[in-house]
Design a protein around this nucleic acid. Structure first.
Length: 295
DNA sequence: CCTGCCGCCTGCGCGC
DNA sequence: TGCGCGCAGGCGGCAG
């Protein structure tokens, strides 16, 4: 599941392998992948032809291709989206026989969008098993695409205001994990890093935000920042083949998880068994001793 | 304005 | 053996 560290790994890979290249052809193989694009697949393909990718930018879990025209391709990986560079050549094992023998071309079953460049270099594929991810062309969006103007800065953004975010958290009438997952409060945190942050800060996921002191709210935010930096250094968290970098390689931060997915294992601080509870239609992992439930 | 829930998706593992 | 179900969970939209 791609959260900030995983998306940043992908952004860096695209900066290396896609920036500076001019798009020759775009092929959309599944219309849900461009459902946010007003004009649909044909318009998406036509809008990008001939444009050059200048830079790759990111805010939270969103990333976008800044184009030489001043426009942008805004992308979100959703639950299972991947960008792969030249995968057809470097990973033949993921290929399947063509559905139609006349087709000739071999394609991965989850291939949704393919970019071909005018330099005859490796192509760029967007694969997405569950189709929660996708792309849209945003005219004039190179600096900041309008559709994500409401997304808060993430903790790795140089302009991130830590104290303002603490104030924002404390001003909300909700539980701390909901606030952490609210991308308009702080962006980039998903279920995995929310649980890891709360474990590090020794705070229960249901603590009311409006009854948290500034130091406690700050410690949760600082833990989130720290855990995401460490995960980025490890290349992200990979549980399976659903998250890999642009070269198809896994990250190894899963070995450093203390709470998420650790149900029944002893807490590394106190030995109490990590518990899993349903919360917000997902799972919350926590140490019932270190992270005491609010009254 | 704010909070919180639903529906969108596919594949896998489990129990019967 | 096969099938139905729960689970994985980010996000937009919308109800209250």
């Amino acid at each position: 599941v791609p959260e900030l560290p995983e998306v940043e790994v992908v952004r860096r890979g695209l900066e290396t392998h896609a920036a500076g290249r001019r798009i020759d052809r775009v092929q959309v193989f599944h219309e849900r992948a461009v459902r946010r694009h007003e004009g649909g697949p044909a318009d998406f393909e036509a809008a990008l032809r001939g444009l050059r990718i200048d830079h790759l930018r990111r805010r939270g879990k969103y990333l976008w291709f800044a184009l030489d025209s001043g426009d942008a391709i805004l992308a979100h990986l959703g639950m299972s989206g991947q960008f792969r560079i030249g995968a057809a050549r470097t990973h033949p094992e993921i290929l399947v026989p063509p559905a139609d023998p006349q087709d000739g071309e071999q394609r991965h079953p989850h291939l949704r969008i393919r970019f071909t460049f005018d330099d005859a270099g490796p192509l760029l594929d967007f694969l997405d098993q569950r189709t929660f991810g996708g792309m849209q062309f945003v005219p004039g969006g190179a600096e900041l695409p309008e559709p994500i103007a409401h997304i808060a800065l993430d903790p790795l953004d140089p302009a991130f205001d830590r104290d303002a975010t603490v104030a924002r958290i404390r001003a909300k009438h909700t539980e701390i994990k909901r606030a952490l997952l609210d991308q308009t409060v702080v962006s980039g945190v998903g279920n995995i890093y929310a649980d890891e942050s709360l474990w590090r800060a020794k705070v229960h996921y249901q603590r009311p935000t409006d009854r948290m002191t500034r130091p406690v709210a700050g410690s949760v935010l600082d833990a989130a920042t720290q855990v995401m930096i460490e995960a980025l250094d490890a290349g992200g968290t990979s549980f399976d083949e659903l998250y890999v970098n642009v070269n198809g390689e896994s990250g190894y931060f899963d070995r450093s998880l203390h709470a998420y997915g650790q149900e029944g294992r002893p807490c590394e601080r106190c030995g109490t068994l990590i518990r899993r509870e349903a919360f917000m239609n997902r799972s919350s992992f926590f140490c019932p001793h270190c992270q005491r439930a609010p009254r």
